[in-house]
């Protein structure tokens, strides 16, 4: 009897590969799919389930389906990729310094002057004063610190 190609093994592995790719290219842009990467976890689950299905077939119906060895390798790789993703998002991303000395609520925001994107110096206290007296009542500043390296 001719062996059938065990499609779900390979399809499952492709789905697993697509999980980190779609996370980095699409889902990371939206808070709803980034803060808790549920969409990516679902894709991983679907991919690993497909590989498991293919692996079960290969062992239960070895005359019909091939892929015992390939399936084991793809499953190990799939689990490893999933593990790396989990390690990155749930462990590495949380390795941040404590920042105990960061300004807290009620404290005066430390003043500073830095160049803007055109190289012109900008002073925080001047921005605040300009806003407070402005006609549009645009009082206050939202200061956002980024990791950068765009």
């Amino acid at each position: 009897m001719k062996h059938r190609l065990n499609v779900s093994l390979w399809a499952g592995f492709l789905v697993v590969l697509s999980a980190p790719v779609t996370y980095l290219s699409v889902f990371i842009r939206y808070p709803a799919t980034r803060d808790v990467p549920w969409a990516t976890l679902l894709i991983f689950a679907a991919g690993l389930a497909l590989i498991a299905r293919g692996l079960r077939r290969a062992y239960r119906e070895p005359l019909l389906y091939r892929g015992k060895i390939a399936g084991a390798i793809l499953m190990a790789l799939g689990v490893a990729i999933f593990g790396l993703f989990g390690f990155g998002t749930f462990y590495l991303a949380r390795q941040l310094p404590p920042s105990r000395g960061a300004p807290h609520v009620g404290q005066k925001a430390p003043d500073f002057t830095l160049p803007d994107k055109d190289g012109n110096p900008v002073t925080l206290s001047k921005l605040i004063d300009a806003g407070a007296g402005g006609a549009d009542r645009a009082n206050g500043v939202l200061l956002i610190f980024y990791r950068g390296y765009w």
Binding site: I28, R34, D35, P37, T89, A93, R94, L96, S99, A102, P103, H104, V105, G106, Q107, K108, A109, D111, L124, S125, I128, G131, A132, N139, G140, V141, L142, L143, I144, F145, R147
Partner: peptide, 21 residues
């Protein structure tokens, strides 16, 4: 990190995330 600063220059709200994601 994100800080909301009022028109008197005081910090009114701070968000120090525990994950950079």
């Amino acid at each position: 990190a994100e800080f909301l600063i009022d028109s008197a220059g005081a910090v009114r709200w701070v968000n120090l995330t525990n994950s950079f994601a």
